[in-house]
Simulated assay, not measured.
Amino acid sequence: MSAIAAGRATDAGSGPAAGLDARVVVRRGGFTLDAALRAPAGSVVALMGPSGAGKSTLLGVLAGLTAFDEGHVRLNGRDLDVSPSRRLAPASRGVVLLGQDPRLFPHLSARDNVAFGLRVHGAARAAAADGAEHWLRRVGLAELGGRRPAQLSGGQQQRVALARALATDPAALLLDEPLTSLDTETAGDVRALLHEQLAATGTTAVVATHDAVDAVALADRLVVLEAGRVTQSGPVREVLASPATRFAAAVAGLNRVVGRADAAAWRAGDLVLPHPAGVRHPLTAVFRPSDVRVVDGPARGVGEWATRIVRLEQTPAGVRVRTAAPDVAVDVAADRAAGLAPGAAITLRVDPADVRFIDEP
């Protein structure tokens, strides 16, 4: 077995323990991270949550860079961390962490940066050089191997960092918002490259991100982390279709309004909608901001309600109006937003046919 493959020496491929299995508790001042995360071998898990939720802390523990207070980390049946006092060093884990900063050596060429990773893992000089050339071709930089990082664009630097990470054949790849610092077009290109190479290599990966596009394009499963706790997890499509929290709904681009059904209708404040027959318990109404309309005059019945504007937010297509009682987002074209202001009264309408109900967990 080559030294480069050592990170996967305990793969066993398809056994029940294959993949990443972690449960960690980290206490820092008034914040506590208490989260479990599982990624079957070869799968990609998206980790989403608001700033300060603990995403980077969790990845730091998995990479062996951050101490924890309780828990364990296992990878392909191999114990990386049994307890806070029994932990493998980062270099011995077979785990690579790649963040927003590519962290390339500025004095080395792209080729030598990739080769460096291979040399650290025991490859001979010639083999490392061949491996670097191979991976630069795979990430579309075959002609730029002689350039130093300062001579590369941000997207090209991130491609070199990805090549260096995957060249060492890691048992798990951790990506901490790797596309955040890139412009939209470049991020799309690197995202496509990530999808292609993760699928081709079968690398188990965890991607921390703020962008639902990353989850949809890259991941099999989605874990939502809020205030140090996992609030929802499951297949990406299921989580986005039935968000369990306000944050998850915002990620999915949906309004999420909790109401209560009685014998006549479903109600949340002044919003009244018909509901499935025979249901008399709390339900969550889910609908798109683009399905809500601003109407003139007072509310006139089912699906129309009066409320007040809380704030206005800019969107690529116009203005998003946030309201209170209930908290709803409404997308309005820029030319129709004149006169709307925080505190102003407003009447909204949603077609009941555009509303889907899910059970409140």
Rank of each mutant, 00 (worst) to 15 (best):
V26F: 10
E185C: 10
D112P: 03
A36R: 14
L88G: 06
L97Y: 11
A317W: 13
A172K: 06
V230Q: 05
A337S: 10
L80I: 12
R78C: 07
P50H: 12
A36V: 06
W266P: 06
F357N: 04
A324Y: 10
S153C: 03
G64H: 10
G52V: 07
R267S: 13
L218K: 09
T186I: 15
S83G: 11
R311H: 13
G343H: 11
L222T: 04
E304N: 06
K55M: 08
V310N: 13
R137C: 08
A53P: 08
Q314Y: 11
G202W: 15
T204F: 10
A353C: 09
G228E: 10
A344E: 11
A250C: 00
R311G: 05
P326T: 01
A91H: 15
V319W: 13
L173H: 03
V96A: 01
V310P: 03
L65E: 07
D81I: 06
V139D: 01
V190D: 01
L62R: 05
A199G: 04
V302L: 11
D214F: 10
V302H: 05
A167E: 01
R119I: 03
S233W: 14
P102A: 00
G259I: 07
S242V: 14
A353E: 13
A63R: 08
L193G: 06
L222I: 08
A268N: 04
L175C: 03
P342A: 00
A341Y: 11
A5Q: 13
G99Y: 10
L340Q: 05
A53H: 06
E70Y: 13
G60M: 08
R87D: 04
R322S: 04
A217G: 01
D262T: 07
G42K: 06
Q197E: 14
D189P: 11
A17F: 14
A217K: 05
G64P: 10
P289H: 01
G52W: 14
V26A: 02
L20A: 02
A36W: 08
A268W: 06
H72Q: 15
L222N: 02
G188W: 12
F287T: 06
A35K: 06
P243W: 08
L348A: 03
G71P: 05
L152I: 04
G49P: 00
L108D: 00
G60T: 09
V332F: 12
G64M: 10
A333T: 15
G77S: 08
A115N: 03
G7E: 07
S56G: 07
A249M: 01
G303S: 04
T201E: 09
